[in-house]
């Protein structure tokens, strides 16, 4: 099955391990994710002001490209757009929802985007996790060659995969999808209350301290609940919860670093796709010693 796929900027720069492991895992499950031939940054955050038009240009242009792919015959009547980054997912999905119900805003957008085909509102924005759930986790389990036996994984959702209500990929109060995936991969799930707590998000540029405090709370709780590793689905969450551990260590004596990986890296690992595809050397807090100690690599 072929799907249009939107990578977003960060998967092409600092989160290549996310993209590589995701594409390879999807392929292993018989899904081909076709990168949009031409795309722009979605803007990363949904524009909340009611009168905003300008900040809708970026996400809507991306959606037009999916319709372009169908017009050009690259895809045949498949308007589902698969995302990996939680922020891209949220921004594209929300913008899509708004313009479909606001013809006035749509008209203004078409006016500015005069060189594009008009957006017909056909696109459905999805996160890869939703696609996996749809396919069935028993199918995922069948593909596992090297189960993550004995690995205690804490799934971390952050904000934008779950909120606001109506735009999340799962029940915001009791999400299951990452838990189910980890179990399908043979790992042990460590549920912890802070799995949907904010990582500090964009404050990481000028208020590292806010992020360090959030990361400290989230990670030390995961540790206390017995986790050995954290799995997540957003390159900004990943930066805040891994790279910023250096900050946490400085500000909170006694803090013990914990490896943080993308859920797709765990999938690629369990599917036996090889360490290269997983890109484990690119994770800031090296997960390899732990994985080696469990004979998983």
């Amino acid at each position: 099955m072929r799907f249009a796929y939107y990578p977003g900027c960060t998967l092409k720069t600092t989160a290549r391990n996310y993209e590589d492991s995701a594409l390879a895992s999807a392929r292993a499950l018989g899904m081909e994710l076709l990168e949009l031939p031409r795309w722009n940054c979605c803007g990363t955050v949904h524009a909340l002001a009611k009168d905003d038009v300008m900040h809708y240009l970026a996400p809507i242009r991306v959606l037009v490209r999916v319709e372009d792919m169908n017009r050009e015959g690259i895809l045949e009547g498949n308007y589902r757009l698969v995302t990996l980054c939680a922020m891209c997912y949220n921004t594209l999905k929300r913008a899509n929802g708004v313009v479909k119900e606001d013809p006035d805003r749509m008209r203004k957008l078409h006016d500015i985007m005069e060189r594009e085909q008009p957006y017909e509102g056909k696109v459905e924005v999805l996160h890869l996790l939703e696609l996996l759930r749809e396919m069935g986790f028993e199918k995922v389990a069948e593909r596992v060659e090297r189960p993550l036996t004995g690995l205690r994984v804490a799934p971390y959702y952050g904000c934008l995969l779950l909120r606001p209500r109506g735009f999340g990929i799962d029940n915001p109060d009791s999400p299951r999808v990452m838990e189910d995936l980890i179990r399908a991969l043979g790992g042990e799930v460590v549920e912890f209350p802070y799995r949907a707590r904010c990582c500090g998000s964009y404050h990481t540029v000028e208020r590292k301290d806010i992020v360090a405090e959030a990361a400290y709370k989230i990670l030390s709780q995961a540790r206390e609940m017995g986790a050995e590793i954290v799995a997540l689905a957003c390159p900004l969450c990943s930066f805040n919860l891994s790279e910023r551990q250096d900050e946490v260590e400085r500000e909170f004596p006694g803090f013990r670093k914990i490896p943080v990986v993308y859920f797709t890296q765990l999938m690629a690992l369990a599917f036996g796709l090889g360490e290269d595809v997983c890109g484990l050397d690119q994770n800031h807090v090296d997960p390899r010693p732990l994985l080696r100690s469990k004979s998983l690599i």
Binding site: W39, N40, C41, M54, A58, R61, I112, R115
Partner: peptide, 23 residues
Amino acid sequence: RCLSCNTCTKACPQDLQVMDYVQ
């Protein structure tokens, strides 16, 4: 800060895809 507004592309006398290169 790029908004993907494409104004740059429309301004370019060389007909370059300026927005695309900024992106």
